[in-house]
Structures are given as structure tokens and as C-alpha cells.
Amino acid sequence: MILEVDKLQIDYQAKDGVTRAVDGASFVVPEGRIVGLVGESGCGKTTAVRAIMGVLAENGRRAGGRIVFKGQEVDAATTKRLLWRDIAYVPQSAMSSLDPVYTVGAQIVEVLTKRGNANRRDARKRAAELFDLVGLNERRLADYPHQFSGGMRQRAAIAMALALSPSLLLADEPVTALDVIVQRQILDMLRDLQERLHLSMVLVTHDISVVAYLCDEVVVMYAGQVIESGPVREVLARPRHPYTMGLRNAFPDLMTDAMELVPIGGSPPDLRDAPPGCRFAPRCPFVLETCTTGADGHSLANGHMSACRRDGEADLLRKEALDPVTWQRSSSFAAS
């Protein structure tokens, strides 16, 4: 395991109280694998990744849990040594993540000279290699971020991330802002780079089809908690948590054409006042009395974890979940 996240808790302090954005999330990243971290916006996936980088917003704070990188537990101070050399980051919007007043080349050189040990000449040569690696013309090193198109900027951001040959790449919605064709190009490139450079990767996305396309493992988050995780094929073929079942229904690429898209009714809970028991219960079409009370469900079989309290009936629920009527029930339920 290159990265282990264990019962991570992240709090945000606001005027009107504390929000626990990540509440006891655990997952692992095996060496040389791509792990998809998937969930709706606000489910804590970005916060979790930023916590790994040690750059939470000012009002954010790690309230508990452990982060272990290559067998060594890291805290805010020790993370700083690892940054970019061992763990690098690919942002969602390369536009706002690049400093507008320096050329892209200068910013790659900056990383190579200030965080690596390269001198300026070597750094420039390496920057050209990196651009080549991500399919950009090295002449574009002299351009400013705003002169790039969206897809090219994303490539530049990936080149930047690879500068110091990190072993773990954290990519936060790296293709969300792009159109579908460019998305595919970037995803293909990421997979290619991952294989060639034997990278380990965490890919944060709200789009389960991206997970299906690229990832080896998947971790599904809901309202700050991990509700299901396991190998992608297994989890997407036989989801055991109703939320994952719903998520799968709500995205196009996976399903056959005949299937209509069915959204999950309602919206995620307010984390300042999280519901007791299973947090998905208010939107779940299969909710039982026991779901809103008592301890978390947690069953693990063949590396496939589910937090559903009705995990024993997973096969039955999955069949029902294929019927759109089931989800209408959930939305009327959520509305009432």
C-alpha cells in the first residue's frame, strides 16, 4: 500500500458551528493502481485529498484519523517534505491553479529548481521533456497560462505534476471542465503515463463513468463517509450499497442504451446536522426503521466493503434498483 487513510476526520469551523466534512473515512491506495474517489459534490472527497496534501482551507482542521504514506504515518509537518517530490497534485481547473503572471515554463522550472535539485539549464531541458511527455510543443513553455486552451492547460498541469517524478498522483476532477472528446484524450494519457511511469493515483470525480473508464479500485463517499469500496469491476457490476446503485443509474456511459437515466431524489444532508444512523437513509428507497438507529453496517467480502445495514439483501435490492419506479419512491419519500 502506498497510501492508507484511516478514519480521517476533517472539521470546518464556521460562524454558525463546526461542520465535519470528512467523518471517519478510510481507504487505501495499492502501489501502481488508480483509485477512483467518487461522490456528489460536497461529499468530502476533495477535502480528503487536500488533507492528504496538508493544505486545508484556513478554517479547516484535521480532527482525527491517520494518514500513512509508504508505511510511515505523516502529519502536517512531515507531509511538507513529501509534497511534489513524492505526492503531486493535478487540479480541476489548471487555469486558476497556474500563476497568471509567469509563463508555464517558468513555473515548471520553479518547481524543478526550488523543490528538486536541478540547476536552471537542466530544469529547462527537463521542462521540455515533460511537455513532450504530455504531448505539448516545447515552444509553448514560453506562453502564459491564459494563452493555452483548456485541454492544453490540463496537460501542462499534468506535466507540472510529473516534474519531480512523484510516486503518487492526486488528481481532483482533472477532466471535469473539459468537453467529452478532450476528456477522453486526457484520461487515455493519464492511463498511459500511469503504466509507463508506474504511478499510483487517486482520481477524484463525481462522474462514475470516468471511474469505470480509468480506475482499478473505487471508493464511494457520501456525506463525509466511505459507504462502499472495492475493485471497480466488482463494485460497479454488483454494487451492494443503494447509493452506489443509484449513482450507477444516474450516469450514461455504463448502462446499455435502452436504460433510461434515473436520478436519485433529494439532496445530501446538511453536515452540521447529520441524520442519525445511515446518512443515506432519508433518500434511500430501501430504508428500514433500523437504518436510522444503531451502529454502522460494515461488511467486507473479497475486498468489497459496504456500509449498508441491509447488506445481506444486497442482491435483491440491486434487482429492485434497476426499476426506475423504485427511485420515484425515493424522491417522493425525500420530498415528504
Binding site: 496534501m53 493544505v55 511538507k80 517534505r81 513529501l82 509534497l83 511534489w84 517530490r85 497534485y89 487540479p91 481547473s93 486558476s96 491553479s97 497556474l98 500563476d99 497568471p100 503572471v101 520553479e110 518547481v111 526550488k114 523543490r115
Partner: peptide
């Protein structure tokens, strides 16, 4: 976001404040 990125890159606080934040 680019200041947060500079932080993620592990730059010193001085470099983040002077080279990136103050310059802008």
C-alpha cells in the same frame, strides 16, 4: 487557487507570499 498550488508544491512561505501572492 494558484497560491494553494504553490503551497502544495511545498514552496517556502516566503516564496509563496513574495513570488506568487505579492507579485499578483
Amino acid at each position: 487557487e494558484f497560491v494553494t498550488m504553490a503551497r502544495m508544491k511545498g514552496f517556502s512561505e516566503w516564496r509563496i507570499v513574495i513570488h506568487h501572492a505579492a507579485r499578483n
